[in-house]
Write a protein that binds this DNA or RNA. Structure first.
Lengths: 219, 219
DNA sequence: TCAAAAGTGTTGGCTATACACCCATGG
DNA sequence: CCATGGGTGTATAGCCAACACTTTTGA
């Protein structure tokens, strides 16, 4: 406010990239997976990386996130998404200084991505391994608390066994069945649905169903 | 990754501004205050605003935060600072689309700022009132938990009465004396210092002193 | 009828909150 | 000696993790 410096205020700014942790629960592999793309262009051409784009002028973070998802063939027009953290290491991109805003998103289709386990991702381009590591703790903290995130990840109906698998993938440790059942029972908008399906040897899981806000396409 | 679009990747990006919630505990007014500057240039010339600058190419968020603090005359070369959230409403700046990364910082001097109470700030330029409102809850949650933040705000030595005032300013509700004393007793690196100073009519407060990492200048 | 998978119950520890009571100081 | 501000102790409720026990299924 004192000593205004117009030239400083109009200096060229860093680029802003939006990098997306695209998530998906694989019912068969019983794990949360991360959507990875193979970079087609330099730098790091041919190497796996998080889907990311440079933010366009005037673009909202969510729009950029959807473009990034398009890079791995996920084209849902209204994916569940949210903001995580902003990384500012100036050397994280060899093309030049680039801010990275990390977003999470839940994919509804497999697209063209490689889906790798979130807890043991392969080596990634840029500082993406570090981004994944830092954000996994945040995602674990959001599970069962941020219902927008949780509902997207579990889908409209899920078995109690799925909840255990999701918890294990995100936190790295298995959850206690009893405690998790009580957590689920306490979540608003979630009810136990008497129907159950057999999956293997033991007793079938109970099913939980989210209510309200149109599951997909009914609105 | 599929269908790479080099032109899109090199599109012009939004500007990035860094806006700082400069904080200070006023021992006399017994409240946490927010440092405000009067804008010297358009837009919103003459109106109060958070100190903010446009991020330069290759600049780290912390560096930009220090430049912003310079705008209100705070020149500490190593202020305590941290990241809050990133705002992306495209119309928040009439000059054009601008991302805003909100930081907190603790000022060691009064500089040239207007220091207003954090809990009742005046009308501010841009969407700064909204930023302050959103971030105050985050700051309240950091108190007594994020020790870097807490120690900076309280200073190296503080009275128990100050702790009550800080808590009230940030959360909006008075703290219970007894419970707060126990919280303080449980914080690592903080010890009760038998010395005490009289301030008014009643019994003098106990003093608490932070240990370790050189208070200021002893290292 | 047994092992695997799932659901229910119980306990102990930690935290948060409220409140009652005792202590030190200035007028 | 009493109002004012400060410190200590205690009781309660809620949350969370751990673990024991029961139920349902497939083989």
């Amino acid at each position: 406010m004192t000593a205004p410096d117009p030239t400083a205020d109009q200096a060229e700014t860093s680029y802003v990239s939006v990098d997306v942790l695209a998530l998906r629960f694989d019912h068969d592999r019983r794990a949360v997976q991360l959507g990875i793309g193979i970079r087609a262009t330099a730098p790091f051409a041919g190497r796996p990386a998080l889907p990311g784009v440079l933010l366009r002028r005037g673009e909202r973070l969510g729009e950029a996130g959807r473009r990034a998802l398009g890079k791995i063939g996920v084209t849902d027009p209204t994916p569940a998404m949210g903001q995580l953290i902003t990384f500012d290491e100036p050397n994280r991109d060899p093309r030049g200084p680039t801010l990275s805003v990390a977003l999470w998103a839940v994919a509804d289709s497999t697209g063209t991505a490689d889906w790798v386990p979130l807890d043991t991702p392969p080596a990634l381009a840029f500082d993406h391994a570090r981004i994944v590591a830092d954000c996994r703790d945040l995602l674990a903290g959001m599970l069962w608390r941020d219902l927008h995130f949780t509902r997207a990840l579990t889908g409209p109906v899920f078995a109690a066994a799925d909840a255990l698998d999701v918890h294990a993938s995100l936190t790295g440790r298995p959850a206690d069945r009893g405690n998790l059942n009580r957590v689920l029972a306490g979540l608003p908008g979630l009810t136990k649905d008497g129907v159950q399906v057999a999956r293997g040897r033991g007793r079938p899981s109970a099913l939980w169903r989210w209510q309200d806000d149109a599951p997909d396409g009914t609105a």
